[in-house]
Amino acid sequence: MANNTFFNDDWLALQRSYWDNWTAMSRKAMGVEGAAPLTAPWENALEQWWKALAPAAPEASKVFMERMLDQGKTLFQMAESFATPTGGTANPLALWTSALEDLQARFSGAATDQNSAAQRMLSFWEMPLDNWQRMMSSLSPLPGDALRNMPHDQLQDHLKRALAAPGLGYTREEQGQYQELMRCTLAYQTALQEYSGFYNQLGMKSLQRLGSHFQSLSDDKPIESARALYDQWITCCEAVYAEEVATPEYAKIHGHLINAQMALKKRMSVMVDEQLGALNMPTRSELRTVQDRLQDTRRDNKQLQQRLHLLEKQLATLLGDAAPNPALALTTAVPAAAKALPRRKSPQPD
């Protein structure tokens, strides 16, 4: 590959060096306990490369390239977990069991080292959740994940008790609105955590399916590439996902999430409207009333135009004219009516 702006030999050399070191360290690790943990320098190289190029990339390409980079990382992170340090055929059951235990610990929150491949792989199962958060961020003044890691359980109980107290005094109505906003916020947080929990469970089931898949295949066709492993993994993930999201339980979780988000947004809109009203500015609710009335008027207007046009055609037929040109008929409708107006008016007394 020739040197160019986007891709150069330094970057390749860095990666090559990483892989040489990785191989050497893996061999060493076979005999030396406590070998230094690896922190995926090829990922860092990739990120550095992208940081240097990203400012020059068009927006559409940028988003796309970032997705390719992210998936590239996932692909090789997974392969790293299953690669055999010394070469030769590994016992996939042992590797898989080890990976499963590791991921299990992470799903439950027991393991926390952020640099491991397993920890980074967790984000893969959360793609739909991540997509929801990104989407909601684009539609809301709050970040999509604002409530995700907020402590709940005990805090929620305290808050619910506090929110149950009636508002007092002159501002009791306003207090009530803020209490309602907090209730909606808590409900959304609960729905989001329920949704997030579903994906944690999905991750575990996908791993179990992958294990079953390994066991169902014959041993004369070993998986020899990261890509083959990744593709089989995706197949297992999609199969488990398809089963789980077709259940009535998931439909409820999905519905709760959207309904809770909408209830929260609606409550925010009500409060924004209150503020706009206090400033003597048009509110969203007033604007919608105007939109409804305007659409009613436009609908009536279009129907009247159509009826007028039909009448013109019927009149032309009665007068024995050829079929009128519709384009002309529509444009001549206004002058014809204008001419008729004074004649109708003239017999009437002022």
């Binding site: 590959m1 986007f6 390749l12 892989w19 590239g72 790293e80």
Partner: peptide, 26 residues
């Protein structure tokens, strides 16, 4: 039980190929 035989040198080569294609894609 199927075996997985992804050797570090194979993985390194695959990674390099991926990187090369990524650069060309960009």
């Amino acid at each position: 039980m199927i075996s997985i035989n992804i050797r570090p040198d194979q993985l390194a080569q695959e990674m390099l190929d991926y990187s090369r294609k990524l650069g060309q894609s960009m």
